[in-house]
Amino acid sequence: MGTPVKRIVISGYYGFNNSGDEAVLQSILLALQEQGERQGVTFHPVVLSVSPAETARTYGVESAHRMRPMELWRAIRGADGLISGGGSLLQDETSPKTIPYYIGIIRLAQLLGKPVFIYSQGIGPVHRPKFFGWIRSAFRRCRLITVRDEESKALLQRMGLSGSEVEVVPDPVMGMPLKSAARHREPGGEERVLAPVIGVSVRFWNKDRSELDAAAEALRRVMDETDASVRFLPFHLPADEEASEYVAERLGETYKHRISFARGVTHPQDMLAEAASVSVLLGMRLHSLIYAAGRYVPMVGISYDPKIDQFLNRLSMQAACSTQAPDAAAIADALLQLLRGRQAWRDEKRQVIERLKSDAHRPAERIAAFYAKGRKQR
């Protein structure tokens, strides 16, 4: 008997030119392929995307439009299961429509009798109590529930799910490898003779731009005191490119020759290579910090959301400051400390990072085992 082929629909925030969410998708696809090969199952992914043609072309997968009901229904009806995740899908901070959409996809799959797997999601914040029951009801019928931090598990328990139903795993992007052909500077190699590079991933958040002003002031101080250059890494196009330009303008003409941009980088593994090539990373985007950690690059976080603090906590770290209280001096001090102590940071964090990278594949391993078990029982 040949290897079974399982069509599996993947639901998430895909096709929006957000490098972090695209990295989640790439990581899930690679993990499914690897774990399927290990356990004798071939997965045929069908990705729900707002730009299905672009998603299909980028990742070599089948894709359906996430907002067209008949396409959704046909994709899920013809599938062997649904993966919901990862990322921060179930939260109502950005919109009250987000949770109903993703729970609706899960409920449709369940109504059609398809097994549903929650893949390393970050749950919350959930401000509207009515959503507690929606999430609890849908999750109780899922075959696997994995979340990316203890805070998400605690929130699900407050919603009424038992702790035994929920498994905490790392963000899937921790397990994403570089492209095999990628060329990047290995930590401790060329950087000993080249001037250090500070990777910067910023986004708009405060209306008065105080968080970006603080980042610019901190970078000015670091560039005053060292020969470091700055490379901006925009994760969500075009908004993050505009935020990067805002910071660059505030650095002024004096440092113009020491500033560069990674423009138009859309494939997550290309952005991972960018993050791998810097000496230290200053990040507001969660996945910029995860990219850096996955390549053993020291990072400084500016927190605009609890998910930033939750990830840094896993590395026994704290954000330099929050967007509620931007602190240029704290950012500069943290950058300077890591620039001077990069190798010590790597030595200290290597073991925990390696464990996180290994554990990031656990949901895919569990999903492959589910289908492999069904094959052996026939």
Rank of each mutant, 00 (worst) to 15 (best):
R185H: 09
R192K: 12
G252V: 03
M317S: 11
T146S: 11
V116S: 03
A181S: 02
L339C: 13
M299E: 12
L219V: 00
E34W: 02
A332M: 05
D305M: 09
Q310Y: 14
S137M: 03
E165T: 06
D208K: 07
T58S: 09
R285F: 06
P306V: 13
V147A: 06
L29G: 10
C321I: 04
L30Q: 11
Q26T: 12
K207T: 06
I8H: 09
V278L: 07
T42K: 14
A360F: 13
G122H: 13
D327H: 08
V47I: 12
A334W: 10
P238S: 07
P129E: 08
D208T: 06
H236A: 11
R220G: 01
R74L: 07
E217W: 00
K373D: 06
T226G: 13
Y246E: 05
Q351L: 08
G104Y: 01
S322C: 12
E62D: 15
G252K: 06
R346W: 07
R57N: 04
E190W: 10
E217Y: 00
A79S: 15
A228Q: 03
S322A: 06
D224V: 09
I353A: 13
I198V: 15
E354M: 12
L286C: 08
E186K: 09
P298E: 10
G104H: 02
R314L: 14
R375S: 09
E241V: 04
G113R: 02
R185G: 01
F370P: 09
V173A: 14
D305H: 14
A182W: 01
A325T: 15
P234T: 09
A248C: 09
S137I: 02
H65L: 00
A364L: 04
P69G: 03
M223A: 02
S95W: 04
L29M: 03
E54Q: 05
W73H: 13
G78A: 11
E93P: 01
E241R: 15
L161G: 08
V50T: 12
P96S: 08
R221Y: 02
A216Y: 01
L289I: 08
L219K: 13
M299T: 14
Y13N: 15
K130C: 00
I145P: 07
V300H: 10
H65D: 02
E274T: 09
F232S: 10
L155P: 06
E71P: 00
V197I: 15
H287F: 11
Q269N: 04
R295K: 15
I106F: 01
V46A: 01
G133R: 04
Y13G: 06
Y291H: 11
Q337V: 12
M1K: 00
L356F: 05
E167M: 15
E93D: 02
D149H: 08
